[in-house]
Computed example of a mutant assay.
Amino acid sequence: MRLDQYLASCSDAFSRTLVRKLVDLGGVHVGGRRTRKCAHAIRAGEMVEVHVDGRSLEPFVLTDEHVLYRDPFLIAVNKPAGVETQPTPARYRGTLYEALLHYLHNPFRPRDKPELGMAQRLDRETSGVLLFSIHRRAHAGLTQAIAGRSATKIYLALVSGAMPNPSGEFRSLLARNRASNLMRSVAKGGKEAITRYRVLQEWGAVSLLEIELLTGRSHQIRAHLSEAGHPLLGDVRYGGPVAVAGLDIPRQMLHSWRLTLDHPVEQRKLTLEAPLPADFQYLVDRLEAGAPV
Rank of each mutant, 00 (worst) to 15 (best):
D4W: 06
Y6W: 15
Y6T: 05
S11G: 03
D12F: 03
A13K: 14
A13T: 12
S15Y: 02
T17W: 00
K21H: 09
V23W: 11
L25Y: 13
R33G: 02
T35H: 06
T35E: 15
A39L: 04
A44P: 01
G45R: 09
E49M: 07
L57S: 10
D64K: 14
R70N: 03
F73C: 11
V77I: 13
V83T: 09
A90R: 08
A90E: 11
H102N: 13
L104D: 12
L116A: 04
G117E: 10
Q120E: 15
R121S: 11
D123Q: 06
R124C: 01
L130E: 12
I134Q: 11
T152N: 11
L158D: 06
M163P: 01
P166H: 09
F170G: 08
N177E: 14
R178C: 03
S180A: 04
S180E: 00
N181D: 11
K188P: 01
G190M: 02
T195S: 09
R198D: 01
L200K: 13
S207V: 10
E210H: 02
I211H: 01
L214I: 11
T215L: 09
T215G: 10
S226F: 02
Y238N: 04
G239R: 05
V244K: 11
A245D: 00
D248Y: 00
I249Y: 11
I249D: 07
W257V: 02
W257R: 15
D262F: 08
R268E: 13
L270W: 10
T271P: 03
P277R: 10
F280H: 05
Y282N: 08
V293E: 04
